Computed example of a mutant assay.
Amino acid sequence: MTDSKDKTDEEWRAILSPEQFRVLRKKGTEPAGTGKYDSHYEEGVYECAGCGTPLYKSNTKFKSGCGWPAFFDAVPGAVNRHEDRTFGMTRIEITCAACGGHLGHVFKGEGFSTPTDERHCVNSVSLTFKS
């Protein structure tokens, strides 16, 4: 079996919706406030929509008001961080450690009363949810 990071664009297109492909594989962003998990607070686990890897537990999700699902921490080892210098700024991109799918960005020091003082700003389309 081929590692999911090694799938071709054609293989990814066969298993992802066009919007999932645009965000997960081409580093797109869904419009703020449009994702189904922004205001979703059920108990369970958020998984990568590309490969099913558990990424975030619901007890790390919080209301940030940013328009995307926000988490203060990921499942250990599930998310990789990369410097992103696009759009004339420096940010920290987060990707699924298993398949390399783009999830969103991490922001630090915003003053939220969370244990890590981080906001993992994640595209809903990059996630699935299991209760």
Results as ranks from 00 to 15, higher is better:
Met1Cys: 04
Asp3Phe: 05
Lys5Gln: 12
Asp6Tyr: 06
Asp6Leu: 08
Thr8Arg: 02
Thr8Ile: 04
Thr8Cys: 10
Thr8Glu: 04
Glu10Asn: 08
Glu11Pro: 12
Trp12Gly: 12
Ile15Asp: 10
Ile15Pro: 02
Ile15Ala: 00
Leu16Gln: 14
Leu16His: 15
Ser17Asn: 13
Pro18Ala: 00
Phe21Cys: 11
Phe21Arg: 13
Phe21Glu: 10
Val23Ser: 10
Leu24Asp: 01
Lys26Asn: 15
Lys27Thr: 05
Lys27Ser: 09
Glu30Arg: 01
Glu30Phe: 03
Ala32Val: 10
Gly33Glu: 02
Gly33Asp: 09
Gly33Arg: 07
Gly35Val: 02
Lys36Glu: 14
Tyr37Val: 01
Tyr37Leu: 12
Tyr37Ser: 00
Asp38Gln: 12
Ser39Val: 07
Ser39Gly: 13
Tyr41Phe: 12
Tyr41Pro: 01
Tyr41Thr: 05
Tyr41Gln: 07
Tyr41Glu: 12
Glu43Asp: 14
Glu43Leu: 04
Glu43Ser: 11
Gly44Val: 03
Gly44Lys: 03
Tyr46Val: 08
Tyr46Met: 04
Tyr46Glu: 02
Ala49Lys: 02
Ala49Trp: 01
Gly50Cys: 13
Gly50His: 13
Gly52Arg: 07
Thr53His: 06
Pro54Gly: 11
Ser58Glu: 12
Ser58Phe: 00
Lys61Ala: 00
Phe62Val: 10
Gly67Asn: 14
Gly67Gln: 13
Trp68Ile: 07
Trp68Ser: 03
Trp68Arg: 13
Pro69Ala: 07
Pro69Trp: 11
Pro69Asn: 10
Ala70Cys: 11
Ala70Phe: 05
Phe72Leu: 03
Asp73Tyr: 10
Asp73Phe: 06
Asp73Gly: 05
Val75Glu: 07
Val75Ala: 10
Ala78Lys: 01
Val79Lys: 06
Glu83Val: 13
Asp84Trp: 15
Asp84Lys: 06
Arg85Phe: 09
Thr86His: 14
Phe87Asp: 15
Gly88Gln: 12
Gly88Cys: 05
Met89Cys: 13
Ile92Pro: 04
Glu93Asn: 11
Ile94Phe: 01
Ile94His: 00
Thr95Arg: 07
Cys96Gly: 04
Cys96Pro: 10
Cys99Glu: 14
Gly100Tyr: 01
Gly104Thr: 02
His105Leu: 09
Val106Tyr: 02
Phe107Thr: 05
Lys108Gln: 09
Gly109Trp: 05
Gly111Pro: 01
Gly111Phe: 08
Phe112Tyr: 15
Phe112Val: 04
Phe112Glu: 08
Ser113Trp: 00
Ser113Pro: 13
Ser113Arg: 05
Thr114Asp: 08
Pro115Phe: 06
Thr116Trp: 08
Glu118Val: 00
Glu118Ser: 02
His120Val: 00
Asn123Lys: 08
Ser124Gln: 11
Ser126Gln: 01
Leu127Cys: 01
Thr128Arg: 10
Lys130Gln: 13
Ser131His: 14
